[in-house]
Design a protein around this nucleic acid. Structure first.
Lengths: 107, 107
DNA sequence: CTTTATTATCGTAATATTGCAATATTACGA
DNA sequence: TCGTAATATTGCAATATTACGATAATAAAG
């Protein structure tokens, strides 16, 4: 086994799980936090800042990017990564609407 | 490898990742949603409702419970699970405060 | 006491994730 | 062109997660 049976669940539920997975690793949370805190843009700084290998950081950036949360563009050799704030707020809204609908009805 | 290097990150960041991991599987999202929607309490209903084996559902319940999100008590043979709404709102606040602090500063 | 219903736990197989070294790839500067 | 810097990709090795059958534990019913 080991395969998540996504086909069992509704799109809405699967989406929430997919978005949550982006935040489910501390490196990715740290990356998002760092990107958001910097005045200018970042790139390889994340490697020295966070302390994981360049390959690993790049991999995490891909995961975050696949969720639509990043905008990256090359400026010469360096790539400037920054937050896609529209997408970020969209995801935040979806998660929050789930939170709001979830209440305590028993016990 | 395969081990998340938690010791690299701050407690705050690790906490966010840990909480997010609870929501990072559709079965757990579905369980929380279902528990919240039911008038009374549930138990083995989740198995027939969601369509995963009893062992699997029980495992997911443990994960959700370990995050402090469930209150469960036996009523005879049946165990009534329900949401620990205080804890739920606490986690919601922690996640939201991260979201709020995250903004777009470049590009 | 025996059976049945309900939930938890154990063991295991399959798959996913994490992390890194090595290796591309791409762009700039000398 | 050549070397260097920055990032991406590939190919593992180690560990984690997911799922389920089998089994244990517990309590009610008969």
């Amino acid at each position: 086994m080991g395969v998540t049976k996504r086909f069992i669940f509704t799109d809405q539920i699967n989406d929430i799980a997919t978005f949550a997975k982006v935040f489910a690793h501390p490196a990715r949370v740290a990356i998002l936090k760092y990107i958001s805190e910097q005045e200018g843009c970042i790139c390889n700084d994340l490697v020295s800042e966070i302390g994981l290998s360049q390959a690993t950081i790049s991999q995490h950036l891909t995961v975050i990017g696949d969720a639509g949360l990043l905008q990256g563009r090359f400026e010469g050799k360096k790539k400037c990564y920054c937050l896609n704030i529209t997408r970020f707020e969209e995801i935040q809204m979806i998660l929050n609407s789930f939170f709001k609908k979830t209440t305590n009805n028993c016990c």
